[in-house]
Amino acid sequence: MISYLGRRIIQSILILLGISLITFALLYLLPADPVRQIAGRSATPATVESIRRQLGLDQPFLVQYGRYLWSLLQGDLGRSYIQRSEVSQLIVARLPATLLLMLGAIVFELLIGLTMGIVAAVRRGTRTDQSLMVVSFIGVSAPQFVVGLLLLYVFAVKLGWFPIGGYGTFSHLVLPALTVAVMSSGWYARMMRSSMIDVLRQDYIRTARAKGLARATVLLRHALPNAILPIIAMIGIDIGILMGGIVVVESVFGWPGIGQLVWQAIQRVDIPIIMGVTLVSALAIVLGNLLADIIAPLIDPRIKLR
């Protein structure tokens, strides 16, 4: 276990290094010039060059990347080109919002997805099953922008049950979290269904039923703990996807998370912010996977980490 963890941590660090190198290289190759964004349209070429020199952007790629890594090792993500504030400060200020939205989304998608999956599995082959799978398919395919605006229009504008965008209270959280959940719950429903069907076919389930146990008991006590294993691994991966993928939802609902931050930074070629958010998201994905690996054997003793 310990040696396994050690190996995984070293792997994770290598992955993060690789991601930082690739992102840095892609941003370096971008035809857009960040210095021109900082200097604005009235700047003389002399001003532009002076800013370029001060930011070290006149240096060769490897020198720039080396400097970035060196600062990174000291926990310094640099300062935003446009805002001039420390990137770490900007991310930290927005991280709670993203984490909250992520948590809300995971709760919703598990509630919706697992319920749909279990019902579909139990009623396999029936109309209920088929219509649930169609619904999950629509959920997976619908663009988040559309779902978000639709929910916003119906529940906030027309019915007035929730505020139109913003951040702060639980009622602010419901619609954006639900929007994210609509998509992923479709995945969870499909995953849960097939996993549940597999488990329900097992001998021990038939035994349990034969013993005369109630159907619900068999389902929730005997089948669910086994069927849910693949879901747990999925949550780990999901954390990463959510971390980087709720840009659209954050925009629609005016949710002050890091997705919104990076979206604005991309438009302004604010490279330190793009790098910072990418690394934090990558870290979340790596940690999420690691977490899933660590939790799996705790739930299922058959899994051994080597």
């Binding site: 965008g165 951040y167 005016g254």
Partner: peptide
């Protein structure tokens, strides 16, 4: 108030 899409702002 920051982070509001123009369409949401209009609503």
């Amino acid at each position: 108030e920051i982070g509001q899409e123009p369409i949401v702002a209009l609503l």
